[in-house]
Design a protein around this nucleic acid. Sequence first.
DNA 1: GCGCCCATGTAACTAGTTACATGATTCA
DNA 2: TGAATCATGTAACTAGTTACATGGGCGC
Lengths: 180, 180
Amino acid sequence: MPRTSATKYALLGLLSCSPSSGYAMKKFIDESIRYFWTENYGNIYPALSALEREGLAVKQRAQTSGRPDSNVFTITAKGEKELDKWLAEPCLPQLVRSELLLKLFFAGRLSRGKAAALLKAELAKHKELLERYKKTGACISEHGRGDKAYWLLTLDYGRRHSAMVCKWCEHSLSILEKKS
Amino acid sequence: MPRTSATKYALLGLLSCSPSSGYAMKKFIDESIRYFWTENYGNIYPALSALEREGLAVKQRAQTSGRPDSNVFTITAKGEKELDKWLAEPCLPQLVRSELLLKLFFAGRLSRGKAAALLKAELAKHKELLERYKKTGACISEHGRGDKAYWLLTLDYGRRHSAMVCKWCEHSLSILEKKS
DNA sequence: GCGCCCATGTAACTAGTTACATGATTCA
DNA sequence: TGAATCATGTAACTAGTTACATGGGCGC
């Protein structure tokens, strides 16, 4: 079974919040949900054309003073129906590929210092993420209109995930230090 | 910069433990490290040919009684060097795409029951994973030769991850229930 | 003979990334 | 005038999945 790319639904979801352009959606994704979703232009623009072709969104040329014109897309009733259908479907099993865990799995070949360096880099990354989540939380409380519960829920996941990784790294590093 | 596929290094890593065939490596991956790494035949066989072409592994035809012949690959000194170089390099930043979090982010459109169903499915999945990790832990203690510390470390990650997801699901479900 | 596991491989496909090209507007 | 940001798009690429084809050996 060919699983349709989720890009389509990510864009429909964003459009269900408010009409938007490809450029603006990319920006929103990078600034707000990058910790669990990414897109790139090479993906977005063709997907938007497809949405229009399928009648799930309509395009309008919009002019804003002081900026180039943009193509603003609005979700249609058909688009909302399609989105809701997808949202209610169970998630397809996702295969994981963690380069870090793969390296660590074979890290017996490395010196302790080099193995520790991998863990320290991961620890630093997630400490920084934890800092960023604090700001995101404040941002949602300010900007979010309507039901923020689910936004906070995904944010909570991010926080718990990074906190877990930090603890695991610290624990792993302490084990490495104890080693002969 | 084109990032070389990690499949190459995954296979080199496995070969650094012991000579093996593509089929056997696929089996090992599926049975032991599926929780953080996956491969499929369409990926493995071409990668093995490439390893041979680059002089990182050598192929030998092997016959086992009662089974079809197999191509057993052995890592070369050059292959080990290449592997060690890769292992010591910092991990490239990995982009995350979680279909579950994406759905949840837009779950304000769903009934509470449907949103809860997504979480319940995830909870069930990770409860089952936790069960499996127990067995894997025992398996490593028995079979693992040499330095098991790093194997246990990746397993510890899996356990912590699934435990975190379970807690997050339960917490999220309790919030959904409290909602008006 | 049939179904199952062993074993290898490829072709066609879907998905996702990167690099490039274009052009507007703003600000220093 | 040059750098930065806004804005759209495509072509070429890398990566990964699925489906298919083939054939040996084993047990029923």
